[in-house]
């Protein structure tokens, strides 16, 4: 097996709903290896997104609720600034609802991660975004607004955005969940292609058939991951 890139150890995450604690993750262990395509399967509300957000440094586990580390470094040891950089350079997110900024054009949306302090810079981002969007068949859409695009086109834009800073890891949260079967398959093919080029990918889904296409699949049940 190749080197360990992303690791979660005994991760707990509890949400508070009013006075009640809702434990969502209760001791998740996961090892993501470099270059791997890992699928995490779970029913709706099982905590897949929560886990993905933790892996991506968008959220932190409970206090004393386990560790997440990237390339041997604990995310909890990073400063806020370093964590911002981690999100900018190390991971790219793809969401079920695309989450594009409606005021920006397709190109600007895709470039955006290049413009944040940890990003590759405007010029490089423009080149890379144009190239990616071209590769994804969106070259005629660069100046369009997201609302003028179909769901599949929006998701392709979102994937281009996730890849603009050339992160080693892509975290995809039900990327096909909102698309029809045909378009979903297209998006998956695209993700496969990028994975083939050396990207480490963690994809969460409730769809067993999608999980089956991964190198390895885990099930998230009752807040724990099982094979």
């Amino acid at each position: 097996m190749s080197e360990l890139l992303l690791q979660a150890h005994d991760v707990h995450k509890t949400y508070r709903l009013g006075r009640v604690d809702v434990p969502v993750l209760r001791g998740c262990d996961v090892n993501v290896h470099a270059g791997e395509f890992l699928a995490i399967r779970g029913s709706s509300g099982s905590g897949k997104s929560t886990l993905l957000h933790l892996l991506g440094g968008l959220d932190r586990p409970d206090i004393d609720g386990g560790d997440i580390s990237h390339a041997g470094r604990l995310l909890s040891s990073l400063s806020n600034r370093a964590l911002d950089w981690y999100r900018a350079r190390t991971v790219g997110f793809v969401f079920q609802f695309y989450h594009l900024l409606p005021e920006l054009t397709v190109l600007e949306n895709a470039m955006l991660p290049g413009l944040v302090p940890g990003g590759v810079g405007a010029a490089a981002a423009r080149t890379r975004a144009t190239e990616l969007l071209g590769r994804f068949g969106l070259d005629h859409r660069l100046d369009h607004r997201p609302r003028e695009l179909s769901g599949g086109e929006r998701q392709r834009t979102a994937i281009a955005r996730a890849l603009v800073n050339d992160p080693p890891i892509l975290l995809a949260d039900e990327p096909t969940g909102n698309l029809d079967e045909h378009t979903g398959a297209e998006i998956l093919r695209l993700l496969h292609e990028t994975h083939q080029q050396g990207l480490t990918m963690v994809l969460v889904t409730h769809d067993a058939s999608i999980a089956d296409q991964a190198d390895r699949a885990l099930n998230l049940v009752d807040g724990r991951l099982t094979d």
Binding site: L58, N80, D84, L112
Partner: peptide
């Protein structure tokens, strides 16, 4: 939220 997810700081 989106901006934070792509690395924007507070």
């Amino acid at each position: 939220g989106i901006l934070r997810s792509i690395g924007a700081s507070r």
